[in-house]
Design a binder for these strands. Sequence first.
DNA 1: CAGCATCCTATGCGATACTG
DNA 2: CAGTATCGCATAGGATGCTG
Lengths: 121, 121
Amino acid sequence: MITLNDKTYTCPVDVTLGFIGGKWKLLILFHLHYFTKKSYAEIRDNLPGISEKMLSQQLKELERDQLIEKNVITKKPYRVEYYLSTEGKSLAPLYEFASEWGIAYLKKHDIDYIQDQHLYK
Amino acid sequence: MITLNDKTYTCPVDVTLGFIGGKWKLLILFHLHYFTKKSYAEIRDNLPGISEKMLSQQLKELERDQLIEKNVITKKPYRVEYYLSTEGKSLAPLYEFASEWGIAYLKKHDIDYIQDQHLYK
DNA sequence: CAGCATCCTATGCGATACTG
DNA sequence: CAGTATCGCATAGGATGCTG
């Protein structure tokens, strides 16, 4: 058993899951990986279906866990940009592979999807 | 948008998450990866904290999604073994990396954990 | 624009007991 | 031994409106 931040994990895989588990975090990390830097609104618009609550919540947790960082560009109007930290970039193999595996799966099963150039390159 | 089994996904990462998302699937896959073949009871005992309901449910879904397969060894007494399918093995980079990243994180932060030889090698 | 507060629902997940 | 059924809770997640 591993104890970390008052939570217990059963193995290292579990620890990693503690950081990127849930419906949105890996998607957010992947998109920041792809676009390098993104405003709040840009992330939101790139993740169809995410609610503002979930987005701000997940961003805050990712920031707390030091996987992403935030710059305040201008105070008025308030503008920010999010980007991956070194720690967040170290997870690149994970979300890159997840993306590639997904693409391969779709191809293998002849499932069409709208190949958005920005999203999937 | 990608439609697959009556569910919609926003990008390939999301598709992959559809197969391995949740609290247990990646752990199950990783353990089967490590131990090659495992009975129901062995998997259960290697995943401290999992309930029988979750285990059987997740195993069924993984089987349905063709990431694992099951052999019935003997009918009486009923004995089975689970193991990764080719498709399940193709996810190896994902759970292997998740494990390595977790280990690296623990080391980096000087967090002790009981290094069970069987579980973590 | 960024992002929190509130309220609400769905469901993931756990505990326990039971069956072939 | 390998599961399934039932129950119930906790929390993940969604919709909407408000604030600096």
